[in-house]
């Protein structure tokens, strides 16, 4: 009954695992991106610590980046709390991405945009040590509030993420891990990830992560398709379906 699962034992930072981050590693959960996991101390997102993600606006791909790990955490009856997401979430898409919705809690920003509420909620969540993962978006978090969150996270087992705009890149931060993420055109719409801070040796090169997207979309995203599309007939003017160009694949609107 009381046997501790092996994974839990291995996840503890004080147990030697033989990789190069060993002495610095926190318990971690695999990110689901092998290329990224290789570069993260502990082989994944740290638990019991705050990770800071710098990205501008919603929709860079940050959710796709975090969801595999969240999914993993929730699979074991853990809860995911999303605090002040920049846009409403699409339950169907979350479910399709494998998130068990019954383990998901959203704390809305609130109409009055009381940022403090979001940070307060995040701190409460981390203090309670109840959720397995917390994602908190904040435009105005300062180094003091980051520090508070890191402290709260360190006292528990929650994987904590703070999402902030990239203008905070140069602010000091007590988060144990800092990354900057940005969507990019090269390589057919991948996500560029720069690891700004980690326990262990610094990493200068960007990582380019493939996000799960239908292949067909990406092939259209290649530059030569761009031109073929643009020099075709205008898509919507004159306002008639008859003006829609044939796509190279043979498919167009009817």
């Amino acid at each position: 009954m009381d046997a501790v699962p092996l994974a839990t034992v291995l996840a503890r930072s004080d147990i030697w695992r033989g990789d190069r981050f060993a002495d610095a590693a926190l318990p971690a959960v695999a990110s689901g991106f092998a290329a990224l996991d290789r570069e993260l101390p502990g082989g994944g997102w740290p638990r019991g610590a705050l990770t800071e993600l710098l990205c501008d606006g919603g929709g860079q791909g940050e959710l796709s980046l975090l969801l595999p790990a969240c999914k993993q955490l929730c699979a074991d009856d853990g809860w995911l709390i999303l605090i002040a997401p920049p846009h409403p979430l699409h339950a169907g898409a979350l479910a399709a991405a494998g998130m068990p919705l019954e383990r998901l809690l959203v704390v809305e920003q609130g109409r009055d945009k009381k940022e403090l509420n979001a940070l307060w909620a995040a701190e409460q969540a981390l203090n309670s040590d109840a959720p397995a993962a917390v994602l908190c978006w904040s435009m105005q978090a300062d180094s003091k509030s980051v520090r508070r969150l890191q402290l709260a996270a360190a006292a528990g087992h929650t994987a904590a993420f703070l999402l902030r705009p990239t203008r905070a890149t140069h602010e000091s931060s007590s988060a144990v891990l800092r990354l900057r993420v940005q969507a990019q055109a090269e390589h057919g719409g991948t996500l560029a990830v720069d690891i700004l801070k980690r326990r262990g040796p610094p990493l200068t090169a960007s990582l380019h992560l493939e996000l799960p997207r239908p292949a067909a979309w990406k092939s259209h995203g290649r530059p030569h398709h761009t031109t073929s599309f643009t020099h075709g007939t205008p898509l919507a003017r004159p306002a008639s379906a008859a003006t829609v160009a044939r796509h190279p694949s043979g498919l167009a609107a009817g």
Partner: peptide, 13 residues
């Protein structure tokens, strides 16, 4: 059979 679903292109391929 094409009914303007999201994955028409993939299906054709």
């Amino acid at each position: 059979e094409r009914h303007l679903d999201a994955d028409d292109a993939e299906r054709l391929a």
